[in-house]
Simulated scan of single mutants.
Amino acid sequence: MNQVTARAAPLLDVTALRSSCLSCSMHQLCLPMGLDESDMQRLDGIIGRRRVPRDGVLYRIGDKFTALYAVRVGQFKTYQANPDGAEQITGFQMSGELLGMDAISTDMHQCDAMALEDSEVCEIPFARLEELFSDIPALLRHFHRIMSKEITREQSVILLLGNMRAEQRFAAFLVNLSSRYAARGYSSTNFQLRMTREDIGNYLGLTIESISRLLSRLKKDGLLAVSNRNLELLDLPALKALAAGNDACG
């Protein structure tokens, strides 16, 4: 069994609220990426910081759009209510990722955002950010790249839900989490799921029973080990092949 141990995600600390973009370990993944020190300080000058407890709501659908939020510590889920009132999860966001971009065109948030654990966000007033775009071209270029990545992510979700078998969907979800943790300096093969199995099923268009069966099947096939919410990906190449449709589960 792979004995690689994941580097634990940082706990929320009172000093984190006083930290700057320059000292943040996530700035190479976030909005300040590629900025020199002076421009980063100008960006940091408009940013506020806010704690959101586990199950706390950062914003709700219909709220007026005033700011973007960069996840500094913790994880979030975004969701909407279907016409019948059922919750539909639209994404999971972790440190270094932006929340609220879907509200730019309408000046109104299009979903709810809830913390999956005690979290902290950087609050970026959008009107002041737009003022900086004209003075810092590199910031505007990177913002466009972030928006492009978000469009690509949404297209990938459509493909995931529309054309993939259940085992492909779940494997692709795990591979995506693996790559995102690796980009943040954590283990790509050993991590904790912050979301529930019900949340995962909701996002992938599968029942919680299907998620449990898929976990059991992948465990039986030697692709992963499961202990409560802790996952160890024992055969990441095989999971990638399964996600790509080059293999079958079980």
Score class of each variant (00 low, 15 high):
157 V>T: 12
121 V>W: 05
88 Q>K: 15
66 T>I: 10
107 D>I: 07
155 Q>C: 09
87 E>I: 11
129 L>K: 00
129 L>S: 02
133 F>V: 04
60 R>Y: 06
138 A>H: 08
96 G>R: 06
166 A>E: 14
127 A>F: 12
90 T>L: 13
55 D>I: 07
179 S>P: 03
78 T>L: 07
166 A>N: 12
147 M>N: 05
70 A>P: 03
135 D>V: 11
74 G>Y: 03
114 M>N: 07
39 D>T: 08
63 D>Q: 03
90 T>Q: 13
62 G>F: 06
94 M>G: 05
142 H>N: 11
63 D>R: 07
158 I>C: 12
124 I>W: 09
147 M>W: 05
103 A>Y: 05
141 R>M: 12
128 R>E: 14
149 K>R: 15
151 I>V: 14
53 P>I: 07
153 R>V: 09
176 N>L: 08
172 A>K: 11
80 Q>V: 14
150 E>C: 10
160 L>M: 14
175 V>Q: 02
64 K>V: 14
39 D>P: 02
170 F>G: 05
74 G>D: 04
139 L>W: 06
108 M>V: 13
148 S>M: 12
102 D>M: 12
62 G>D: 05
42 R>Q: 13
68 L>K: 01
58 L>T: 00
144 H>D: 07
157 V>K: 13
125 P>K: 04
39 D>M: 07
162 G>E: 15
154 E>D: 14
144 H>C: 13
119 S>H: 00
177 L>H: 06
178 S>E: 03
56 G>M: 05
44 D>T: 06
97 E>T: 00
38 S>K: 14
99 L>K: 09
82 N>Y: 10
